[in-house]
Simulated scan of single mutants.
Amino acid sequence: MGQYLSGVQSAFSDYHHDRKFRVQCTPDYRSYIHYSYCSWTDYANEMDMPLIFQCRDGGLISGIESFHDNHFEDRKFKFKCCHYKYMCTYDCFYTGWLNSFGAYYSYEVPHNHFVRGIVSLHNNVPEDRVFDFEVCSINFDCDHTSPTTTTSTTTTTTPRPTTARTTYDVFLLSMVHGDPQKSVPILGRRSRA
């Protein structure tokens, strides 16, 4: 039986210029569902640079690993993505920024939803990051042509409206994983000039 990321709490330390994370994973209660495969990514960001990550081919985040560098006062992140047989993601949305720089955040994924991606920006003044999660529902009743097909279908993600003021514009970019012919469009954010 697999597990999936179901919640994150994070507090910032001014003294350490770092965040402490508490990650919650939930066992998949559907014993008849099994992952077709899981794999760890390489580090998805460089120090002091944006993190724009999405599990490829409709996968779900089931693990996070990171390390802190005292010189940069920042973290690099890698992710474990898992895929189910006959899985389709749908009703995807971005949470909006879960925290402001230096602030605590706590996020629990809604029932029957899963984290597929994470966007994070670093700021050198507070030496901190803000986080925005991409959350999706999944369905196992996809229109697959044969019972042995394991291709996942992915819907486009749209940001939910937010009342919070932001200094970032939303943009669409292609994330390339190995083969440039198989780029994955993802929604990200960038600072306004």
Score class of each variant (00 low, 15 high):
Phe72Gln: 07
Tyr32Arg: 15
Lys85Phe: 09
Lys182Asp: 03
Thr26Pro: 01
Cys82Glu: 03
Asn139Phe: 04
Arg56Val: 01
Ser10His: 06
Asp169Gly: 04
Cys136Gln: 08
Arg165Asp: 14
Lys20Ser: 14
Lys76Asn: 05
Val109Cys: 03
Gly58Asp: 01
Asp74Trp: 06
Glu134Ser: 01
Phe67Asn: 11
Thr151Phe: 07
Ser152Pro: 05
Gly58Glu: 04
His71Cys: 09
Val135Gly: 02
Gly102His: 04
Phe77Met: 02
Ser137His: 11
Glu127His: 13
Gln24Tyr: 13
Pro110Leu: 14
Asp42Leu: 11
Ile118Gly: 03
Tyr86Cys: 07
Ile64Val: 15
Val119Asn: 00
Thr154Cys: 07
Ser100Arg: 10
Ser6Asp: 12
Pro147Ile: 12
Leu173Cys: 10
Gly178Ala: 02
Cys136Trp: 09
Ile33His: 01
Val130Met: 12
Thr41Phe: 03
Gln9Tyr: 10
Pro159Leu: 02
Pro50Val: 15
Phe131Gln: 01
Asn70Ala: 13
Gly188Met: 01
His122Ala: 02
Tyr4Phe: 13
Tyr37Met: 14
Val23Gln: 08
Asn124Arg: 12
Arg19Leu: 10
Tyr4His: 03
Thr145Asp: 15
Thr89Ala: 06
Ser10Arg: 05
Tyr107Cys: 09
Tyr105Arg: 10
Asn123Thr: 10
Glu127Cys: 12
Cys82His: 07
Asn124Gln: 10
Phe140Asn: 08
Arg116Ala: 08
Asp141Lys: 15
Cys142Arg: 08
Gly188Phe: 00
Val170Met: 11
Ala164Cys: 07
Ser66Ile: 08
Ala164His: 01
Arg56His: 10
Ser36Asn: 14
Ser137Arg: 15
Trp40Arg: 07
Glu127Val: 08
Gln181Val: 00
Thr41Cys: 06
Leu173Gln: 12
Ser100Ala: 12
Gly63Ser: 13
Phe79Lys: 02
Phe53Leu: 00
Glu46Ser: 07
Arg116Leu: 02
Cys38Gly: 13
Gln9Phe: 07
Ile118Leu: 15
Gly63Asp: 04
Leu121Ser: 04
Tyr4Glu: 03
Leu121Cys: 03
Leu51Asp: 05
Ala164Asn: 09
Phe67Ile: 05
Thr154His: 05
Ser36Phe: 07
Gly59Met: 04
Ser10Tyr: 06
Gly7Thr: 09
Thr154Met: 03
Asp91Gln: 14
Tyr168Ala: 11
Thr150Val: 13
Thr148Phe: 14
Pro147Asp: 11
Tyr29Leu: 15
Pro50Cys: 10
Val176Ala: 08
Ser62Asp: 02
His113Cys: 15
Asp128Glu: 06
Asp14Ala: 06
Pro185Ile: 02
Met87Glu: 15
Thr162Glu: 02
Gly117His: 02
Ser100Val: 04
Arg22Cys: 11
Asp179Gln: 00
Leu98Asn: 09
Gly58Leu: 01
Pro27Ala: 09
Glu134Thr: 06
Ser39Glu: 13
Tyr4Ala: 02
Phe101Ile: 12
Arg19Tyr: 08
